[in-house]
Design a protein around this nucleic acid. Structure first.
Lengths: 255, 255
DNA sequence: GTTGACCCTAACGTTACGTCATAGACTATG
DNA sequence: CATAGTCTATGACGTAACGTTAGGGTCAAC
């Protein structure tokens, strides 16, 4: 009981033309063809179509999808990881744009003509460099000229002022969340989840934060007074608490 | 001292071909043409180009940009407001996608095969159709009914399960934040900022929340026991506190 | 007076389909 | 069983915003 084009189209929510197209470019050829030349799709075909839509949704183009689905040894994990980075960048950018639109709106509301320079400051890259330089020296001492450091430099060099606002806000939220959970103890599931988010945050925006690095970072939170001071702004003892939670988190990873 | 194509291109960061294209479609015609037929751009032209790039950045197409820049009475505020909605929707979707990719990654890491239904539940395809309908509808009635309820219905009908998760999480954060600020009093700047966020949240995801409506909403928080109970889950007295803060917020708006 | 960098127009290529146009296949009903 | 209505097929042109040759002038410098 195979399905005809329109049945598939209605079931999955694509157009008939799309199926024709996928057939033509060899991305999805129906398993059977009726004597009259009708395309007859099986459940296998539907599954493949689902896969196609999944990859399309995350912005692969059709050729890439074909490559992915057709090569058996394809490294999906790496592809997805790489792609996730792109998506994050996209989101950072989108946030920036929304902010910019909001600002323009506020300025219109307030009848204050936004001058063009201000309007385009949002898209200015040079501003950021200064901000970056400020931390560069410090970071070099801490991390040395290691890979994570370089990777971070590469990534952060692409961020704008607005990106930083978003990143900082996220970090801020995270600290606050963890502080609010301090009385539950460092091993609490919610705390551990927040710690995982913290590591994810670092990986997303700075560099691939391995467990070893993450553990080391925790150590610094208590051993480097600058870190401690910075974190304890959110609550006395937070730095120490985070270090403990991070250690537990890393221990659990190794099991 | 006008600029030639390549100079403009290098200065602003677009391709020469793009300038040719904009010229051809009448979006940006250089103020002068040299005897040899060279395009010669003035500072005015550069300014217009900046404007073009701004609107392009926020995803208007070239025809729309032309309309905006060429009609003096164009209502920028409405255009931007409408556009912001689209961007928010885009972000909600993007978040959903990132989550899905992350889940896929986790499942790969954990060697747990994610079943296909789970994998694709996230991508409700009917959603896409609605999105298309929305464009047609918007074009037809431009700005028809302002009834907040209908607007909200229209908006929320487009949200998927995943969207709701994001929206609810935001709301949750907001309540928690305000609760944590309760001892500062309802007029505190931080509280007022959170209240503004609250209103923005409503406007973003539900309907255009005017000050009058917002004030009325505050009243309901204390007068409708269902609201009160729901909000006071976050902390006893929060509903009352929010109502006071919202009142102060609205009072300040009127000044 | 010739190089090399720059300018022009014209026109086809790209992506992922949408949208006809034309014509055959299948199903239900009178 | 003829006919209407729905579905199927294959072209083939249209879309958006340019990229990319191709073929041929222009200009300042050496």
């Amino acid at each position: 009981m195979p399905y005809k084009v329109k049945e598939v189209a209605d079931m999955i929510g694509v157009s008939v033309r799309t199926l024709h197209h996928y057939d033509k470019i060899g991305l999805l050829k129906p398993e059977y063809i009726s004597p009259a030349g009708y395309r007859l799709y099986t459940d296998n075909d539907l599954e493949r179509l689902q896969q196609i839509l999944f990859f399309k949704e995350i912005d692969f183009n059709l050729q890439e999808i074909k490559d992915i689905l057709d090569s058996p040894g394809f490294d999906r994990k790496r592809a997805l990881t790489a792609h996730k980075e792109l998506l994050i960048e996209k989101r950072v950018r989108l946030n920036k744009i929304i902010k910019s639109v909001e600002n323009t709106l506020y300025s219109i509301e307030g009848d204050i003509e936004m001058n063009k320079n201000e309007m385009f400051d949002a898209f200015d890259m040079s501003e950021i460099k200064k901000h970056q330089e400020k931390y560069a020296e410090e970071a070099r001492q801490k991390y040395g000229d290691t890979d994570p450091y370089k990777e971070s430099q590469k990534k952060t060099s692409r961020y704008t002022k607005e990106d930083w606002a978003v990143i900082m806000a996220e970090q801020d939220e995270n600290y606050k969340k963890i502080r609010s959970l301090m009385d539950k103890g460092p091993a609490d599931p919610e705390v551990q989840k927040a710690i995982r988010d913290k590591r994810q945050h670092i990986t997303d925006y700075y560099y691939n934060c391995t467990p070893e690095i993450f553990r080391g970072l925790g150590e610094m939170y208590v051993n480097d007074p600058r870190f401690t001071a910075n974190i304890d702004k959110y609550g006395v003892g937070l730095a120490k608490f985070m270090q403990e939670a991070m250690q537990i988190y890393c221990d659990n990873l190794e099991k």
